[in-house]
Design a protein around this nucleic acid. Structure first.
Length: 488
RNA sequence: GCGGCUGUAGCUCAGUGGUAGAGCACUACCUUGCCAAGGUAGCUGUCGUCGGUUCAAAUCCGAUCAGCCGCUCCA
């Protein structure tokens, strides 16, 4: 059997390691499953993603402020939010078909069948029994056996025991590891925002509607991580909780979906590979009344980059009840306390960076003439300008160093003087550097350099004095080139 | 966790019991005057790990670790 050609994902993973975007974590010890370290170029890419998000969500607006809350909060936070009880899944395997299911979903399907056959009383009875055993593994299994639920694939009832997969990482706070010291690593940054609602309102005197934005690491003990950095157990989130009056929630829900969808387009993501998908009622998280996902068409299929959810007043209400501290906003004009609704755009930072990598990846030509190029938007490219002396003589390296130093305060720069000029261009193409400058003999004579553009490979002669302005202008006017390469 | 596939140089991979290899990449020097040029020299490996069989193991056997795909979940 012929070996399959390396897929686009394989090539990107390989490029990421070779050029320093993403390394497998703990590699010298044999690796740590589904964990990755971001290398020198990757950390720049991720930083650009976060900067672009913060710029658009905080700096470009008057109604959103930032926050950086702790990863380890009181365990009470996660009890109140429902994560301790609800953020785990009862899973069961069928030994014959090797398929895995959520035990409660199997039973819910059975209830649905009863409903369809108009056996309402049976459905209700089963629902009641399900509610009674929802957090009891043995009870769930017994219920599945009692109801003679068969695996739709194998048709057998050869089930394993039900096991709980809690998605939160536990840790211990303090020197003595006993049950009183158990704490959790946050599974989302959002709760840190909710519990600081009063603090932020008091400190900033913000009025509804307003938002609180936060970027930071979250941790979920995923049963099945995978697809490179797409789903990892440690990941970085970019979340914003937008608080508004309950009656305005639907319009803000729509507003933020549009806003967030547009953000990806503005950073150059291929429109045909981006879509909004509305969640069906039964796939909503326990806190949401509605959710729309921004999805990208990866080589492995459409996958979620960001969820824009209507979290209603669920979280503030839960924390108010559990803590005894009312998390409401006082409307002085109408002399009333408002329990705000929350619209939450929650994006995955690593996923977004990976989207830009995948979407930017392009190959042109074949064999010796092949060019691999990352067509990043100039605003997210790890390096903006690379400076080359055409040859290593006649004062060119010194002149190049001088120009690189001139540009350094304005752009992310790099300098390379080894190997042929063509090879240096290609090396920069491969890491998505949008501009290359070449210093030649004329530079020393008349103070001009060759500015070479990544996507079109066109060269223009630019005076050193005009460089900063010309590069700025090119960055701002950049638009995604029509696809010409065979990137599939 | 279960099943299938996989693990040899930085990357892609060849190597079915007898001295660890290729291409690309990388480093130095020479050459080089605008798109992966050429020459010379050089570096790179506990063959994932541990154990077993054997005179001899990258190769056969066992275990283990890690990766990929699928099942469930989500940013």
């Amino acid at each position: 059997m012929a070996k399959p050609a390396p897929s686009v994902m394989d090539k990107i993973v390989s490029l990421c390691k070779r050029r320093g975007f993403v390394f497998p974590a703990s590699e010298i010890y044999g690796g740590q499953g589904s964990t990755y370290d971001w290398g020198p170029l990757g950390v720049e890419l991720k930083k650009r993603v976060k900067d672009a998000w913060w710029e658009s969500m905080v700096y470009a607006r008057q109604d959103v402020v930032g926050l950086d809350s702790a990863i380890i909060q009181s365990p009470d936070v996660w009890r109140a939010s429902g994560h301790v009880g609800g953020f785990s899944d009862p899973l069961i395997d069928n030994k014959t078909s090797k398929q895995r299911y959520r035990a409660d979903h199997l039973i819910e399907n059975k209830i649905e069948k009863y409903r369809k056959r108009k056996k309402q009383d049976k459905a209700d009875a089963l629902q009641e029994r399900l509610n009674a055993v929802i957090s009891d593994n043995a009870g769930l299994k017994q219920l599945i056996l009692d109801e003679k639920i068969k695996d739709p694939v194998s048709g057998t009832d050869d089930w394993t025991d039900v096991r709980q997969f809690n998605l939160m990482f536990e840790t211990n706070v303090g020197a003595v590891q006993d049950s009183a010291s158990v704490a959790y690593l946050r599974p989302e940054t959002a709760q840190g925002i909710f519990i600081n609602f009063n603090n932020v309102v008091t400190a900033t005197r913000k009025k509804l509607p307003f938002g609180i934005a936060q970027i930071g690491k979250s941790f979920r003990n995923e049963i099945t991580p995978g697809n490179f950095v797409f789903r990892t157990r440690e990941f970085e989130q970019m979340e914003m909780e937008f608080f508004c009056r309950p009656e305005e929630a639907p319009q803000w829900y729509e507003y933020w979906q549009n806003e967030r969808y547009q953000w990806y387009l503005d950073l150059g993501v291929t429109p045909e590979k981006l879509r909004m998908r509305q969640h069906a009622q039964d796939e909503l998280a326990h806190y949401a009344s509605g959710c729309g996902d921004v999805e990208y068409l990866f080589p492995f299929g459409w996958s979620e980059l960001e969820g824009v959810a209507n979290r209603t007043d669920y979280d503030l209400k839960k924390h108010s009840e559990a803590s005894g501290t009312p998390l409401t906003w006082f409307d002085q004009q109408n002399n009333e306390h408002v329990a705000p609704f929350v619209i939450e755009p929650a994006a995955g930072c690593d996923r977004t960076a990976m989207t830009f990598l995948v979407d930017a990846y392009d190959e042109e030509g074949e064999g010796k003439d092949q060019r691999v190029v990352l067509r990043f938007h100039p605003k997210i490219a790890p390096i903006t300008v690379a400076v080359f002396p055409l040859v290593k003589k006649e004062g060119m390296p010194e002149k190049a160093a001088e120009i690189e130093k001139l540009l350094r305060p304005h752009f992310r720069t790099a300098m390379e003087e080894n190997q042929s000029i063509g090879r240096r261009y290609r090396r920069q193409d491969e890491i998505g550097t949008p501009f290359c400058l070449t210093i030649d003999g004329d530079t020393i004579e008349d103070g001009t350099v060759t500015l070479r553009e990544r996507d079109s490979m066109t060269q223009t002669r630019v005076a050193i004095d005009d460089l900063i302005g010309v590069i700025r202008e090119s960055m701002n006017s950049w638009s995604r080139p029509e696809p010409v390469g065979a990137s599939e």
